[in-house]
Design a binder for these strands. Structure first.
Length: 346
DNA sequence: AATACAGACAACCGCCACTAA
DNA sequence: ATTAGTGGCGGTTGTCTGTAT
């Protein structure tokens, strides 16, 4: 048979905030006997508490290796990065943050980070722009101008790589930081939104086609079209071989070397989109290659290894909420090459 | 000064995987 | 093999404190 129950008779057991006296009893007992056997601990320690309550009090508050105080930039960024990968696995996140408890991280997420992401229009669950803030209907309007917010709303049905590009364009537009050359790009201005939408959807239908099936357990996919080639005739991976990577999960290994890896990934993505749209023209072979060569990406923005000091964070003092929000905004932004030809992309 | 409200965080509740009996 | 307790986890609630009216 099973064990005897932990808290059969809960009457007489105290609940609510712990008093300093109770804390001292628990600390002294654990110092003498060590943690564990939480069922018998309250009785042996002279506490009118449930063993579960004792364990929680110890692990979340009394443990000597707990770090108290505000979360640093580095810690906050680590939380965001890990949350984008792990979701609400607070214990797993806490395991990567020495001295922080899962409960503390969970509280900090719900009271600080989550709200800040929402203010920025980012869904704290998916770490992508919120769909409910977008006006999908305007996509089908008659405007001859590309509607970036509308494009963002297509995220659920379109390949994320291209939408990430639109995301960053939109972010730049919102911040009034968009490159004026880009806004004045005739290829964008003259683009019929309906045609653009149609092409995007067609490309996604190809990606989702039956022969675009899973290749292995890592959910890699095989491109239905002949692979694109780069300028050096290397076969580039298919569109979905570059899985969607939320801004906060772009790890340092992908973005080091002055963003070269990321630049190559983006280039391959654009080439693959070119292939998805049925164009035989490779971006790398186009006359606009020089534009991509000029493409700069500040890898330092994202090159923050876990458990290490960030190269971006001003650990010396910039620690206000506004500064953190600004920092998060930077995580969503990268430079668009001035002469990037969207006609090739489409 | 009193009250209402919001933010922060400690603590509780319920569920589940693991495992002792 | 089965049962049921334990420990761990995530979601939620309760309480305290600071601020605005």
């Amino acid at each position: 048979m099973g064990r005897s129950p932990c808290c059969v008779d809960k009457s007489g057991l105290k609940k609510g905030p712990w008093t300093p006296e109770e804390d001292q009893k628990l600390i002294h007992y654990i110092q003498a006997h060590g943690p564990g056997n939480w069922r018998t601990l309250p009785k042996n320690a002279g506490l009118q508490r449930c063993g579960k309550s004792c364990r929680l009090r110890w692990t979340n508050y009394l443990r000597p290796d707990i770090k108290r105080g505000r979360f640093s930039f580095e810690e906050e960024e680590t939380i965001i990065q890990l949350h984008s990968v792990l979701g609400n696995k607070w214990s797993a996140i806490a395991a990567r943050l020495p001295g922080r408890t899962d409960n503390e991280i969970k509280n900090y997420w719900n009271t600080h980070i989550r709200k800040r992401l929402l203010r920025m229009g980012i869904d704290p669950v998916t770490h992508t722009p919120r769909l409910d803030l977008l006006d999908l209907s305007s996509i089908l309007g008659t405007s001859t101008h590309l509607n970036f917010p509308s494009l963002l709303g297509l995220q659920a049905i379109l390949n994320p790589e291209l939408l990430r590009l639109a995301t960053n364009l939109f972010a730049s537009q919102n911040d009034n930081n968009i490159n004026p050359d880009l806004l004045s790009n005739p290829h964008l201005q003259n683009q019929n939104p309906q045609m653009l939408l149609r092409k995007l959807q067609e490309s996604q239908l190809l990606i989702n086609a039956p022969n675009f099936q899973s290749n292995n357990s890592d959910h890699q996919f095989q491109h239905p079209l002949p692979p694109c080639t780069t300028s050096n005739n290397n076969v580039s991976p298919a569109c979905s071989d570059l899985p969607m990577q939320p801004y906060s999960t772009m790890n340092s290994s992908n973005l080091q070397n002055n963003g070269q890896v990321f630049q190559e990934s983006l280039l391959q993505s654009l080439e693959n989109y070119s292939g998805c749209f049925g164009s035989n023209q490779s971006l790398s072979n186009s006359s606009n290659q020089s534009g991509l060569e000029n493409f700069s990406f500040d890898s330092s923005v994202l090159s923050t290894p876990l458990n290490s000091s960030s190269t971006l964070v001003n650990s010396g003092g910039a620690n206000t909420e506004d500064e953190k929000e600004s920092f998060c905004s930077n995580l969503m932004r990268f430079d668009i090459p001035d002469s990037l030809d969207f006609e090739d992309l489409l």
